[in-house]
Design a protein around this nucleic acid. Sequence first.
DNA 1: TATTTATGATAGGTTTACTATCATAAATAA
DNA 2: TTATTTATGATAGTAAACCTATCATAAATA
Lengths: 230, 230
Amino acid sequence: MGIEIKITLNEGLYLKDPQDSVLGRNIIKHSILLLSDLGFEDFNFKKLSLEIGSTESSIYRYFENKHLVLIYLVSWYWEWVAYLIRINTLNINDPKRKLEIIINCFVSASFENPSIDYLDKSKLHSVIIAEGIKVYRTKDVDEEDGKGFFRNYKQLIKTVAGVISEINPTFEYPYVLASNLFEMSNNHIYFAKHLPRLTDISVNGNNVDEVETMLNYFADKLLTSAFRLQ
Amino acid sequence: MGIEIKITLNEGLYLKDPQDSVLGRNIIKHSILLLSDLGFEDFNFKKLSLEIGSTESSIYRYFENKHLVLIYLVSWYWEWVAYLIRINTLNINDPKRKLEIIINCFVSASFENPSIDYLDKSKLHSVIIAEGIKVYRTKDVDEEDGKGFFRNYKQLIKTVAGVISEINPTFEYPYVLASNLFEMSNNHIYFAKHLPRLTDISVNGNNVDEVETMLNYFADKLLTSAFRLQ
DNA sequence: TATTTATGATAGGTTTACTATCATAAATAA
DNA sequence: TTATTTATGATAGTAAACCTATCATAAATA
């Protein structure tokens, strides 16, 4: 009933699509909860199966290993952010305004509707902030990139870089800025919480306004000509 | 004979100072080589002991686990970069010039003298680029921060933030910029090698000039008033 | 010469990661 | 309807990773 969103991901990520069964959706749901509680290193399929009330072998029928579960979740998040950007920038022509919307999606993708019952987007966002970088910082990065596992991240960054180039066609680093805005968003939310001496930002509860303001300031400073009066 | 450099690190990182014995120095040396070859996930004390011609139990007398070895190496690197910045900015008064020197240290800390036989700084730099972020992206971050394991990183960032504030005392995000320049340096060297569609930079062999130019451009754009003619 | 210290050798225990097999209930096809 | 396929659970088991403990011995120090 109502509108249903189904995000499709690279088929190489799973052995069996977890979105198609109760057990599969439970794997996704409790992976997010457990990853958020334990962190990636202490998370494993044994604990996950106990949480779900299933067995290790059943989970292995969906995912080869926990690393692929993480890539699956992160890919889902990337697609979700790309979707949010798409619908929120519809009918917006000013690229500066578009970039502001993009930045808003980066910092608070978790607080948007519509909701999907088996996927707590707020918890997913904290998993991305704490663990997201681990998907591509491994020895297998080249092999996994070859399988297209990071294609949707690259697509997301390409979209953002396009908007950046619209704002300032002479700017030489649209991809650097695009990927950096995304990484900074996650980094400084993390720093604010765990290593506050590495940032000027503070985050109170779920209030990430300071991060948003900061990213807008950085983007504006970098893209606005030094000669323009503001 | 000659000048010897000894970097002292937080004593909580090790059970026994690896710099004080042949075996200890071998642990450091071969940890760097193995981490660079295998990555953190596939690295373990069994493989390390075989490489050295020692035993697992002997290595456990120096470090509690491989995560602490990584923190040890990363801390050593942070101290080393701080040292390089200190000596290379001696007698330099212009803070803009100081920041240029800092950026140069960030991107190419591996190619400076003097050399320490048991520590391949070029290999260490690639370990930092690929694995460095893993030291503080774990569930134990708060506990380990409480033990002071990240104090020298925070000190390094504080120094850089100080120079940034010298350049522009009204700039609101000195710590964000300082930590971001460091992280961007490692990130984009990594991207250039493994995920080139996330950056505009290319790195040929050990030539990181483009990264250096990019970081200088970002810093300059952010810190120079919009009204100043350049 | 006696004692402490560092290392190696060896063993073992626990957990993690993963594979395989079989039983059964549910869904689907004939 | 009955037959068959499919999904899951139950159970077992292996190899490696992670970590601790004990003992022997050689080197360094008292």
